[in-house]
Design a protein around this nucleic acid. Sequence first.
DNA 1: GAGATATGTCAATGATGCTGACGTATTTTG
DNA 2: CAAAATACGTCAGCATCATTGACATATCTC
Lengths: 187, 187
Amino acid sequence: MAEPGTGPEPAGEAPLFDLIELFFFAYRDFTADADRQLEALQFGRAHHRVLHFVYRNPGLTVAALLDILKITKQSLNRVMKDLTDGGFIEVRTGVSDRRRRLLQATPEGCRLALDLARLHSERFERALAPLPDAVRPQAVAFLLGMIDTAERPQVEALVWGAPPPDPDRPAGRDAGPHRLGAREQAA
Amino acid sequence: MAEPGTGPEPAGEAPLFDLIELFFFAYRDFTADADRQLEALQFGRAHHRVLHFVYRNPGLTVAALLDILKITKQSLNRVMKDLTDGGFIEVRTGVSDRRRRLLQATPEGCRLALDLARLHSERFERALAPLPDAVRPQAVAFLLGMIDTAERPQVEALVWGAPPPDPDRPAGRDAGPHRLGAREQAA
DNA sequence: GAGATATGTCAATGATGCTGACGTATTTTG
DNA sequence: CAAAATACGTCAGCATCATTGACATATCTC
């Protein structure tokens, strides 16, 4: 249809093999940066994900975190124990609802999360440096478009809902405005 | 430097949280498409990766495949057995070097690989549809830039080295030009 | 013939996910 | 107030996908 005279197309258009494969390799190298750093602490990728989202959403509840990561509480608790034992994440009891556990990165946890985020950032910066400035917002739009439509509102709230906390401020008080509607003050 | 008067920056620039998190969520949803399809066949993501790269590089040797996937032969053989037993991948003995095993997708394997690739393609097409046409090559450049510099030549050869095979042609003969220097005729 | 190479296999282990079943504390509801 | 729902934690078992280490076999190269 688009290319007359090329003969019958057996089963639709040719797949975008370049994007498929580049996405696979890009993600693998992207994660490898942090993996090397985490190895020294005996942490895995799961620990990193938990720490990252807790760092980015201080006061997050367990249920909200499970919803972000889409894993079970059994899977979460295994790595959460390592993170709390290691002093990277602090758990407090909610005030308005004492059943809730409010999660927060300790100053040490903030430092680690920030270090790892910078590693990832540097890779993005290296990738974007040789390209026109306009590519950065286009990359954001492209990646957002890759996310399930149903998930997009939640992801947008998560990504642009609030500025990151300051690792030097002792991990208490309100470390930022509400995001996800999952935060409250701790005791 | 770039923003005078904003006060001291404690430890470098703020990370690109948006790209970091969008990349995470985008990859997760990207892989979820194929995962659902593979579940019916009792295959996992590892089976998919193996089938995909064998489909894309007919005549690939085991060593070359291990180098692409960066896994051990023990990990590979577990899923390879499932794929050969299921009639998705065919293994032949090399001619010029009979130690080598030349891997090739069967017609059934080609169909499955192509179906899964199209699933992934559709997600890319949905993501790119609302964006300017210029974004597609920029997305390619961006993703390529995310890959380790040392790996880039190999990835480029893998991605743009040869056209994909035709699933209707019986899986024999030379199904395309050499790529990676890893292919040869089978007995 | 010796040694390197390509591959396959056995055994054990680790990381990360899952389901199902309970238990406990706390809040909400009737 | 009692019952039900909610938030969380835990125990037990299982699946997938990766690892390391050791060893066997076939084949090629020198």
